[in-house]
Amino acid sequence: MKIFASLARGSLVAYTALFFAFIYIPLVLIAVYSFNANPINMMTWSGFTTDWYAQVLGYKTAITGDAFYVESTDQLVQAVFNSLKIAASTTLIATVFGTSIAIALYHFDFFGRRFYRVVLFMPMLMPDIVLGIALLIFFVNSGINLGLKTIIIGQCTFLTSYVFIVVSARLSGMDRTLEHASADLGANEWTTFRKVVFPQLLPGILGGALLAFIISMDDLVITYFIAGVDVTTLPMFIFAMLRRGIKPEINAIAVMMLSFSFVIASLGLYLRSRQK
């Protein structure tokens, strides 16, 4: 019996280790190879270098003509800027919309409430490519020029759903009698919202906003359809680079994006745990 128990324990440990290895080894490899000096075959280690980072950031120009793939650092910087601009705007808009819808659906009982809820889930469930095409057709038909504006509007359609779901989850965990207590102690609806509901909701709102920001920074498929010809976001830029072969600079960009996401996600987790 003792052997079985330790065997079961051992295999559980092994399974857990394999599981995490499966998820994280590719990420670790990217990080390792981003420091690989071999410019031709990046799977073969030939020495440590930070050249790729330096190149991506524009501190160093090409070593050899062939290895140089970031044609212009300006383009990369422009793409990052576009992505940040879009993510900031969509986060702001989607957070305001998603939060207000969540509060309205939680607070007021009106005809079609359940229907609204389902409708809000839809954009998340819809395949990206379908949503992308639908948005493209819509924008072209309504004569709106494709560009930053259309990307922002398009991303808001599904990011609002994400914020809505995160904030709704937080709301449903809230104790309704707290609002009663507040009203009982003389606070009207607005004061109750300001002093009791909102402070408790804040971690949920921030969590939803961070999620929206990351998804917006990361979105390729939908953005690709509605970006038009003049605007390039960071994922689009990387995708374009990839089409000409996987080159070391991409590893460096990937690691930087990863670190950025990691910081945002940690911030989100920290905020959640602090307010619980």
Partner: peptide
């Protein structure tokens, strides 16, 4: 409720 001169001790304290 917020304009009534009455206060409540709730069952779950709230």
């Amino acid at each position: 409720p917020y304009r009534r001169p009455v206060n409540t001790v709730f069952q779950n304290y709230a």
